[in-house]
């Protein structure tokens, strides 16, 4: 196994719900939207790979597919040598998923109780779990607050707790879905330092990180893939991507413009998938995707 993560033509199409009239007028027509299209990625062990794109570009769908939460429509993928679909249980055993959604914890439980619960789902019990949880709480700097209720934590502490949870099973691969999304600039900077120093430096994990934050991608990632409208436009090191541009001292924003033909902030997700309801809202002229740059 040369690559820790390897995808081949990985594609996800979602069926759109039919309206009442369509149901009768076109009963056999299948309306689909392509959220992720023919993605080919090869990531080596210990690499911090970033996937950069605006909201609705397909980053979260791609990560959820790689975490076995969404089944691909076409293509294949292997994580740690395990087939994403056939060996989904083994894939889950070898990965950690860190989401920016702070609702993914039980707010009335303490930080330690939350970790104990998720440790039991990873088949860690009693002493093994206690030892591992103590290690992780020290690693993320939350040992002193471990017995406080989760609801009393700041956004940064909640995100650190999400990292501790993602590391519970000592996974070879960590998937991070916009880990600094809910943080203020100071807390985000701290977290980036933590990821670089501890997750990569001390723990040596392979990290697959999605972000729509240019400085974050520039600061953290060994290699970057730019995704737009579900397609990977380019993959390379930041230096490599910049070298391809005929511009002095280009930024990642210029790289995005060069490879997608669009300003990062101008991207409106006409085709982009943001859940069925999101798509329907988009078609009805509602919110057209959040743009954070």
């Amino acid at each position: 196994m040369r690559y820790t993560i390897e995808t081949c033509e990985l594609t996800k199409k979602f069926g759109l719900q039919k309206g009442f009239t369509d149901f009768f007028l076109h009963p056999f027509r299948k309306d689909e939207i392509t959220a992720v299209e023919e993605v080919n990625i090869k990531i080596e062990k210990g690499e911090l790979f970033g996937i950069l794109g605006p909201n609705g570009a397909g980053k979260t769908t791609l990560i959820k597919m790689l975490c076995t939460l969404i089944l691909p429509s076409e293509g294949t993928a292997h994580i740690n040598g395990y087939d994403l679909v056939k060996d989904s249980g083994k894939v889950r055993r070898s990965i950690g998923f860190i989401t920016s959604d702070e609702r993914s914890f039980y707010w009335r439980l303490t930080g330690r109780q939350n970790l104990k619960f998720f440790a039991s789902l990873h088949n860690y019990y009693s002493n093994d779990a206690e030892v591992r949880i103590d290690e992780l709480l020290s690693l993320v700097g939350l040992k002193d607050r471990a017995d406080d209720e989760f609801l009393s934590y700041s956004a940064g502490m909640k995100q650190r707790m999400a990292i501790a949870r993602g590391l519970l099973n000592d996974p070879a691969v960590l998937f991070m879905d916009e880990p600094t999304k809910a943080l203020d600039p100071g807390a985000a900077q701290n977290l980036r330092g933590f990821i670089k120093e501890h997750i990569i430096g001390d723990e040596g994990k392979t990290v697959f990180l999605s972000t729509h934050n240019l400085p974050e991608a520039e600061e953290l990632c060994d290699r970057i893939a730019i995704i737009d409208e579900g397609r990977i436009k380019v993959i390379g090191t930041l230096e490599g991507l910049k070298d391809a541009l005929d511009k002095p001292d280009p930024g990642l924003n210029d790289v995005f413009l060069h490879y997608t033909g669009k300003e990062f902030k101008e991207v409106a997700p006409k085709r982009a998938y943001s859940g069925r309801r999101g798509v329907m809202r988009g078609f009805r002229g509602g919110r057209r995707g959040g743009l954070r740059f």
Binding site: R92, R93, D101, S104, Y106, F118, L121, R165
Partner: peptide
């Protein structure tokens, strides 16, 4: 509704067991 299902389903524990 609580938002915890996704975090549970990404663990090795089978969905039916959960």
């Amino acid at each position: 509704m609580m938002g915890t299902l996704e975090a549970m389903l990404v663990t090795p524990t089978d969905t039916s067991a959960i």
